[in-house]
Design a protein around this nucleic acid. Structure first.
Length: 667
DNA sequence: AGGTGAGCATTTTTT
DNA sequence: ATGCTCACCT
């Protein structure tokens, strides 16, 4: 097994990969070969006799888990690679819970509530629990419930506060539905392992070595889970992360998990990866100058063997409109001068709203781009509708889904009827569907409404019978149900532009295709399909492989990615750091965000700053970000848009200018 | 039941 | 500027 080639690794990476036993903390700076090191470590463990099946690698996203599996597959035999468990925290919890959920009073076939389901239930609960004059914002309630769960706060015994009442009622409802939300998956898994030593021992015996990626993003519960699962004495836990890239504090991540790692796992070996294989030293120096202003961090200093490089440009532009024009112009100039494809460029910003001006300019010049982030495919109306329809076809007892489709398209079961039914169902502790179809309920409503309800229920039942028949073409059945009930027509009618109609149609097709593919490939049930989707909501742009074009992306979403040429826009006080972070006292995290942005760049980095920006509809004066002062120094050139424009054009630029003029004439 | 306009807030996002 | 919610109107 000397296939393992240590000489591919630098000394620190090697030390990390071959660490024998006990806790290991790998502080992996941006671009220092973090994944390569984890994969090498896994390979080393296997090659020195650890059974592959005893290795557990935990990540945050499905994408990261998949990538890790792929890279492991390239290093080991297929069988070994298959035996390694690489999973997200949440998927791991589901596996743990599916086995022993009964010990917590759930049925093992509990359903998983995604954010939409959760929101629906919270709204329902708020309507039930609160008086008309004390309605609270469901979004706020959701955040507070999530925070409470993550902090391990039980619902108050007496429903004294409104929010407390909502919290406890929400939990009761989830229980009654045999459902867990995303937070429950973690809390319940932790509770199960905590309260049931036999289960804990079973899972501890299952794995001998555990790795956790992006450890700076873990929250309290995730740390608990790691502690509970880690086996060995001292525990064989290897965590990888970078406190300087901790940018998810606002959703519960605890930087202290990595800063105080020794407290949780005493006497770890600590290895710093500081050699960067991504950026030029010029870029890294600027990044180092910035981040060293943060207190409370594990000091690291990135370096690269690539000396020099283009200077970092900091450009002051008059306003956001000019900023977009300038960036697009520069992109064109670089592409023209260096003959590089659009894929090598990224424009990175703090807020999604900043993408709009960029998009307009890119479209004008016919530059292909992909927009990362924004709304998830699964948040699209038609996708939610269709998934809710499928859910109801499989199980009409799911109130939230039923509520979504009961009158979509309009079929004569209006809000008033639903309101009454909801009241009855709460009182009788029955599902909405059962309440509606109860003969006693019919007498409460008009003949017309009763007929509408009956027709709806009969239609659902008829399709369900077909759907449950083995070998049925589920996608076709669902599709014809939607067509028969006039859903597609209704969807089209509600679109303002033909473009939107086409888009929605595409979304509908895509989700139905996914169902068909799932059935064909995995021969799984429709329930399997729904389950898988609730844990694996990939963003639209991840699925499409048309990775062509320039990338527009937020700083948060850009973490982990790299681009040869990066434009970091909107470096203004109030945007980066965001105004809100100042009142919340999280400017350090904003600095890390800026740091993440800078360290995405491989070859060139241009930072722009507007002197005026449209905010809330009116032009506002902006001061440069204080972070710009912090990166000042050798290799960082500050200039103004006016300086650059009054300079004569380079020869290469001229070619692009003609192209852009021609392109803009087309419009 | 469903469409329309006033009023309002407006960071970042995964599971 | 813009999108979203809610109340009110047809």
């Amino acid at each position: 097994m000397s296939r393992f080639r240590l000489y591919d690794l630098n000394p620190e990476q090697q030390r990390a990969a071959t660490h024998e036993s006990g806790p290991l903390l790998i502080l992996a700076g941006a671009g220092t070969g973090k994944t390569r090191t984890i994969v090498a470590r896994i390979t080393w463990l296997v090659s020195t006799g650890t059974p592959a099946s005893k290795i557990l690698a935990v990540t945050f996203t499905n994408k990261a888990a998949r990538e890790m599996k792929e890279r492991i597959a390239g290093m080991l035999t297929e069988e070994q690679a298959d035996d390694i468990t690489a999973s997200t925290f949440h998927a791991l919890c589901v596996r743990i819970l599916r086995g022993d959920a009964d010990k917590l009073g759930y049925k093992s076939n509990f359903t998983i509530f995604d954010e939409g389901d959760q929101m629906g239930l919270i709204k329902k609960v708020i309507n039930r629990v609160t008086a008309k004059d004390e309605k609270i914002d469901p979004g706020l309630a959701k955040n507070m419930i999530s925070k409470a769960k993550n902090n391990g706060w039980a619902a108050p015994e007496d429903d004294e506060t409104v929010i407390g009442a909502v919290y406890s009622c929400y939990n009761r409802e989830l229980r009654a539905l045999n459902a867990m939300d995303f937070d429950d998956l973690l809390t319940n898994a932790v509770r199960l392992l905590n309260d049931h030593p036999d289960v804990r021992d079973k899972w501890r015996a299952r794995f001998s070595h555990m790795m956790v990626d992006e450890f700076q993003d873990t929250n309290r519960l995730q740390l608990d889970l790691v502690s509970l699962l880690a086996s060995g004495d001292p525990p064989n836990v290897c965590v990888v992360g970078d406190d300087d890239q901790s940018i998810y504090g606002w959703r519960g991540a605890e930087v202290s998990n990595i800063l105080e790692f020794e407290k949780h796992f005493p006497n770890p070996e600590v290895i710093r990866l500081e050699q960067n294989y991504r950026s030029t030293n010029t870029i890294l120096t600027a990044a180092n100058r910035l981040i060293k202003n943060n207190p409370r961090r594990r000091a690291k200093s990135l370096w690269s063997s690539v000396q020099g490089g283009d200077p970092v440009h900091v450009v002051s532009v008059p306003d956001d409109k000019t900023e977009a024009e300038f960036v697009v112009g520069e992109v064109g100039a670089i592409r023209n001068a260096q003959r590089v494809p659009w894929e090598q460029f990224a424009v990175i910003y703090r807020m999604n709203a900043q993408s709009r001006l960029m998009e307009e300019n890119l479209r004008r010049l016919r530059i292909p781009y992909r927009l990362v982030g924004g709304k998830s495919f699964f948040d699209r109306r038609e996708v939610k509708d269709i998934l809710a329809t499928i859910t109801c076809l499989v199980n009409p007892q799911e109130d939230i889904s039923l509520l979504r489709i009961i009158n979509t398209p309009p079929r004569g079961i209006g809000a008033t009827t639903v309101e009454i039914a909801l009241e009855h169902s709460a009182k009788a502790h029955r599902s909405l569907f059962d309440t509606l179809t109860d003969s006693a309920f019919e007498e409460q409503v008009s003949r017309k409404t009763a007929a509408a309800i009956r027709e709806f229920a009969e239609n659902l039942a008829a399709v369900r019978i077909h759907l449950m028949t083995p070998g049925a073409d589920a996608a076709a059945l669902v599709s014809s149900y939607l067509a028969d009930t006039g859903y597609f027509e209704d969807l089209k009618r509600s679109c303002k532009t033909p473009e939107e109609a086409l888009n929605r149609e595409g979304g509908a097709k895509e989700i139905l295709n996914a169902l068909a593919t799932h059935q064909a490939r995995k021969r799984g049930s429709v329930q399997d399909f729904l389950d898988e989707l609730s844990l694996n909501r990939e963003r639209e742009e991840d699925k499409k492989d048309d990775g062509t074009g320039l990338t527009l992306i937020t700083l948060h979403a850009a973490k982990g990615l790299e681009f040869p040429h990066v434009f970091l826009i909107g470096a203004e006080d109030g945007l980066l750091p965001h105004e809100r972070s100042k009142t919340e006292g999280t400017v350090d995290e904003e600095r890390r965000l800026f740091y993440v942005g800078i360290t995405r760049a491989m070859k060139s980095l241009t930072i722009t700053q507007c002197r005026n920006r449209m905010k809330f509809g009116s032009a506002m004066h902006c001061r440069p970000s204080p972070f710009l002062k912090e990166i000042e120094g050798e290799g960082v050139h500050a200039e103004t848009y006016e300086d650059i424009m009054s300079r004569p054009l380079d020869e290469e630029d001229i070619g692009f200018s003609f192209a852009s003029i021609r392109a803009s004439l087309d419009d």
